[in-house]
């Protein structure tokens, strides 16, 4: 029997889509929270960080409650004739939810380490909010944002618990590499499991090498400036 590579493509697709979603969402939310009054900031910060400290299975359980057919959201999805639970999109939702706190927190940290007076002076110079964001905030926080992206990528790639809870283990549909490994081992197919383990290690290694190449390049840029 030919080796089934479906889990690889599903994993890659899920991870890439989740990372893109989390990238924009994390930056947007971080930017929004930073400019809130202190109290609202503390509360929202706790809420957005919460998925990070919950066990993935618990997170999956809550997502199941939220998206299941008995919840308002589930009813809405049903009315729109959208089936999310146990579809491929469920893997993306699980991946995004577990990776979001990582991106959000690193983005927030990256924005907060920027000297406040630099933003203030940009405003007095007449720069629009949009220009301040693209020309000053983004370039100055880029190393942090990239680190957050790499973290999110690795986290989503390895996601298991929440995915299993809301997406299940449907071959060629929702079975990602971590699920494939678990069920191969469970079925006593050590050979298949080993292939997947090797592949996922390779992917993780690759993302690490890319990240360190990029950071050494940005360090070179930084040293040109100092």
């Amino acid at each position: 029997m030919a080796f089934d590579f479906a889990p690889l493509w599903i994993s890659l697709k899920t991870t890439l889509v989740s990372t893109v979603i989390v990238f924009f969402l994390g930056i947007g939310v971080a930017q929004w929270v930073i400019n809130l009054p202190p109290r609202a900031k503390t509360v929202l910060d706790a809420i957005f960080t919460f998925p990070m400290i919950l066990p993935p299975t618990v997170l999956g359980f809550f997502l199941l409650l939220l998206l299941g057919s008995n919840s308002p959201v589930g009813q809405l999805l049903k009315a729109l004739d959208l089936k999310v639970i146990f579809s491929w999109w469920a893997t993306v939702i699980a991946g995004s939810v577990v990776a979001f706190p990582l991106m959000y927190r690193t983005a927030r940290g990256a924005f907060e380490q920027i000297d406040r007076t630099v933003i203030d002076v940009a405003r007095t110079l007449g720069l629009s909010q949009r220009k301040i964001f693209t020309k000053i905030l983004l370039p100055l926080s880029l190393p942090g944002l990239m680190a957050g992206t790499a973290l999110s990528f690795s986290r989503t790639l390895g996601e298991f618990g929440a995915t299993l809870m809301i997406a299940g283990n449907i071959p060629k549909k929702t079975q990602t590499i971590p699920l494939a490994i678990f069920f191969a081992v469970e079925g006593g197919d050590m050979k298949t499991a080993l292939v997947w383990v090797a592949l996922i290690m390779l992917l993780s290694l690759l993302s690490m090498v890319l990240q360190s190449l990029w950071s050494s390049r940005s360090q070179a840029t930084a040293s040109r400036r100092s």
Binding site: D120, R123, L125, G126
Partner: peptide
């Protein structure tokens, strides 16, 4: 501030 035309030297 961006519309005030007030320069500020920090």
């Amino acid at each position: 501030p961006e519309q005030r035309r007030v320069g500020y030297l920090f």
